[in-house]
Write a protein that binds this DNA or RNA. Structure first.
Lengths: 140, 140
DNA sequence: AGTGCTTTTTAGAACGATTCCAGTTGCAGT
DNA sequence: ACTGCAACTGGAATCGTTCTAAAAAGCACT
């Protein structure tokens, strides 16, 4: 059960991840949780907040999404020409739609990578991403 | 044997891929081939050319790398915050260094992905990327 | 509640990568 | 050579993201 849907309060979540529960962050956490599992760009999130009457500086959105990611609440995926923030921090892989530039979770059982190489000398492996590039049929 | 190292002339390569062998493109192909397998950014390639006394508009570099990619001579990899062009068009996967933002080929036997999911409805799979995120030991 | 210190928020400027634009050049087919 | 279309060019424009400096808000300690 991820933090998105567990029983803790927004404030408890923030504190548990070492983040000060400011007024803005409480609003952000509430809206993220309300929307469930999905992928945000700073821009799309900013628009969503504005539509709920919540006025934020775009810089705050960037700051906050980055802090939340560093704190382990979100996952940052940089594939294509913008940065996506995934509200599901559990390990999982993605589809990438070349047409729209959007990403989407691979649902259910995750693909596995076999035959992983040793990293180059002096490097540590942080993680492995599988990206399945897709496009809408009959386009391109 | 990829086009980088086969016996064809630069002009033959371009024509075989439906590209007009202009003076500029011939220079670009020559320099790419001379450098062997590696990863270019438009910026790094532009610099490399300038150091060889070859003056290009940056826009031409972007145009050309994109055309070469569409023609199948290069592979475009958009992971991190800039676009990399891989001079090895054969299927293979990459290391991504979080510290420097650079990518590098996974050498030798390639990792395999098992348990690939069906794409979402109405989508076709174009390819699968495996990206092994690494960082220099003792950093971060 | 008041004080002082630190972190966060903010608007706008700055930045870097990439594409667009409009004019020029140059290749290819008559 | 002439003509038409594709490619090249420098500079402006665009877009996503980060930086900056100042104001606001949280926090610890009285």
């Amino acid at each position: 059960m991820s933090w998105i849907a567990d029983g803790r309060t927004d404030e408890e979540i923030l504190k548990a991840h070492g983040l000060r529960p400011t007024r803005q962050r409480l609003d952000l956490v509430r809206v993220i949780r309300k929307g469930g599992r999905r992928h945000l760009t700073p821009e799309s999130f900013h628009r969503e907040l504005a539509e709920s009457g919540l006025k934020f500086s775009l810089a705050t959105i960037y700051n906050s999404l980055n802090s939340f990611t560093d704190a382990g609440l979100l996952r940052r995926i940089g594939f294509g020409d913008r940065t996506w923030f995934c509200t599901n921090p559990a390990p999982h892989h993605h589809f990438f739609d070349e047409g729209s530039g959007r990403i989407e979770d691979i649902p259910g059982d995750q693909p596995q990578v076999v035959g992983l190489p040793e990293p180059p000398d002096g490097m540590t492996v942080l993680g492995v991403e599988v990206i399945v590039r897709v496009k809408r049929e009959g386009v391109g």
